[in-house]
């Protein structure tokens, strides 16, 4: 039976990157320390700031909200209903319960109810991967909610493994513009709020364990759209390296921030974008309509597309295994594109 590195009590988890085991109390201490270090080192926010935390119902964002409030920050949740079948229904229930149990304020925006479309339908009309319309919609809604609610900063639950996977993808293409913007904190500019990722020093394994020991109920199943996507492939590739050389993922990402990011940084001095003619958010050319309003316009004009129809064969099988077939799909042999 392995023992905690700090107190020699029975351990609850082994963390190969620290070459050590930890009890629940000391795992919690480690996570809090890494969280505070990220917040302070990158000057993300202070207890004076009003924080809007984007919550999906997954482990990272709920762990982040828990960390923020228990560390004394003023953090309101923002949940976005993406219309991704039963995955979204379940996420909404989980986030609502989390907020209610802890007496926290939660803002909810529903793409279908509030903007007339959902992610599967947007994916179908744009004929692109669902994550691209989804990402565009989430960014727009974060920015708008922050501006309207007078928040100082929007925070998201991206963890070390997420950021390392994105870095790996950007480096494979040497996409210097994306590499430059891959910072754990982006300052507010031109009507866009400050953005921060306080979990960049914590891994998926640590965040999942955090939720178990803190008794946080979260949606364990992934978004069905994520199955088999590129982000996943990069994570798997890094996991292979990490398995033989623990700590490589952290060294890759944190080393990038420390030694590479300063070399490619430069001051962007662009003009303020003109407001969108439809919604007033910063958009681009004068008298233009922003990308979100254009998407809402196109996707809102067609019949809703059920999630199963935009999943690939493997992802659809997994979705049905996890969530059951919806009434629409039962007895429907052809199964769309």
């Amino acid at each position: 039976m392995s023992k905690c590195r700090s107190c020699r009590a029975p351990a609850v988890i082994d963390l190969p990157r620290h070459n050590a085991n930890f009890c629940a109390e000391h795992l919690e201490q480690l996570c809090r320390r890494q969280f505070r270090r990220a917040v302070d080192d990158f000057e993300m926010f202070t207890t004076e700031d009003r924080i809007l935390v984007a919550v999906s119902g997954g482990k990272d964002s709920l762990a982040l909200w828990d960390l923020l409030v228990t560390e004394g920050y003023d953090a309101v949740g923002l949940y976005i209903g993406l219309g991704i079948g039963r995955y979204s229904d379940e996420s909404h229930v989980i986030v609502d319960a989390f907020a209610r149990d802890r007496d926290l304020e939660l803002i909810t925006v529903d793409l279908r109810a509030d903007h007339g479309f959902d992610v599967p339908t947007a994916a179908r009309v744009t004929d692109r991967v669902p994550c691209s319309s989804c990402g565009l919609s989430k960014r727009h809604i974060f920015d708008t909610a922050a501006r309207e609610g007078g928040f100082d900063v929007v925070v998201t639950g991206h963890n070390l493994d997420d950021e390392a996977a994105v870095l790996f993808g950007n480096a494979l293409r040497w996409d210097v513009e994306y590499l430059r913007r891959q910072a754990p904190v982006l300052p507010a500019r031109h009507g866009f709020p400050r953005k921060a990722k306080p979990l960049v020093r914590l891994t998926e394994r640590e965040m999942a364990a955090w939720c178990v020991i803190r008794g946080i109920d979260y949606v364990v199943e992934e978004c069905p759209m994520a199955i088999g996507n590129r982000h996943h492939m990069y994570k798997e590739a890094l996991a292979v390296v990490e398995a033989t050389s623990p700590g490589s993922t952290a060294a890759f990402y944190l080393g990038f921030l420390e030694r590479m990011a300063p070399l490619i940084a430069h001051d962007e001095d662009t003009d303020a974008p003109a407001p969108c003619r439809m919604c007033g958010s910063p958009s681009g050319a004068a008298d233009a309509v922003c990308a979100f309003c254009r998407l809402a316009d196109r996707a809102g004009a067609v019949q809703p597309v059920p999630v199963e129809l935009v999943l690939g064969r493997g992802a659809r099988r997994r979705y049905v295994e996890q969530w059951g077939a919806s009434a629409l799909m039962e007895g429907d042999g052809h199964g769309g594109s």
């Binding site: 994550c131 992934e222 978004c223 994520a226 982000h231």
Partner: peptide, 8 residues
């Protein structure tokens, strides 16, 4: 046995 990976 709970997977820790998440996507999106």
């Amino acid at each position: 046995i709970r997977p820790v990976v998440s996507g999106g």
